[in-house]
Design a binder for these strands. Structure first.
Lengths: 154, 154
DNA sequence: TATTGTTATACTCTATAACTATA
DNA sequence: TATAGTTATAGAGTATAACAATA
């Protein structure tokens, strides 16, 4: 006879609930930088993969291209990215990370690192490593373009 | 000299991105049941803790009480919960899970279990267990009321 | 006076559809 | 004709504020 797992015993449930809590908390802590999680997603993708077109970013972030326009507008206002017309295909606007953008991204990384310490405070070092490794494995298949890139959602 | 972790190397980043992806996928798969993740959160809380007032549920779900009204309305329409005036304090409407609600919840649990299998397909059994245990530990402190209850977001 | 539930309204985020320019 | 970017508009989800009933 088959035992049916309770909803609250699933990895799916825990990832969903923690994901929202973590994203909300992260959003609060980067608000002073003038950024939302999705902006950080753009910066992370540019940092990991170099200049990218808005269409590419839309696919990677799993959002619609028109949203990338708004994200790019805001990042440009902050001086975090630059729009650069692709000479080979003048329809494309490649987004390029600026030094200011790199600075903002590293501030966000510091915020996330601080949150990591809080989140994993109750875990032994070995458990912490196991969690991080497992998450990387799951993300590699379900989470994102490649192992070297980044996203946020939402 | 201190090494600064990249954003995409943080647990925070992975929980945030995976959380959104997992919640979106879960939402698609329970759509046919007439439920959204937040509705499932209510059902899970009632199942774990027994009848609860709408205020209690709002606190547990980290949403505003007026939203619980809408969630309860919909669940009542589905026949999944019943509103029961508390005789001891007639201001309170305790929500009670019905047999139909229990059935719906177990369907959702089956969906989540199926997603678990997909999500952890690349993990060895030991890694799978380590992930599940670490998530439970993190949730216990940051995720929710008690170890025995449930939530969604969003 | 404070609390529970409710309603009405507004705000945030994101998507859809139509348009411009390049190809 | 098809694609990249843009604009205008609409929808989903959630919060805020004011109100009624009960304590």
């Amino acid at each position: 006879m088959k035992h049916v797992k309770a909803l609250t015993d699933t990895v799916t449930f825990h990832l969903g609930t923690l994901g929202t809590i973590v994203t909300t908390r992260f959003a609060e802590r980067i608000d002073g930088l003038g950024l939302k999680p999705k902006h950080v997603g753009v910066l992370a993708l540019l940092h990991a993969g170099g200049p990218a077109s808005q269409q590419d970013l839309a696919r990677a972030l799993r959002v619609v291209p028109s949203l990338v326009v708004a994200l790019a507008d805001h990042l440009e206002d902050l001086g975090a990215v630059r729009r650069q017309r692709d000479p080979a295909d003048r329809r494309r606007q490649n987004l390029v990370l600026t030094p200011k953008g790199r600075t903002l991204l590293s501030r966000c990384a510091a915020v996330a690192a601080a949150m990591d310490a809080e989140l994993t405070a109750d875990l032994a070092p070995a458990e912490r490593d196991a969690l991080a490794r497992a998450l990387v494995t799951v993300t590699a298949r379900h989470g994102f373009p490649a192992a070297d890139s980044g996203q946020d959602r939402p």
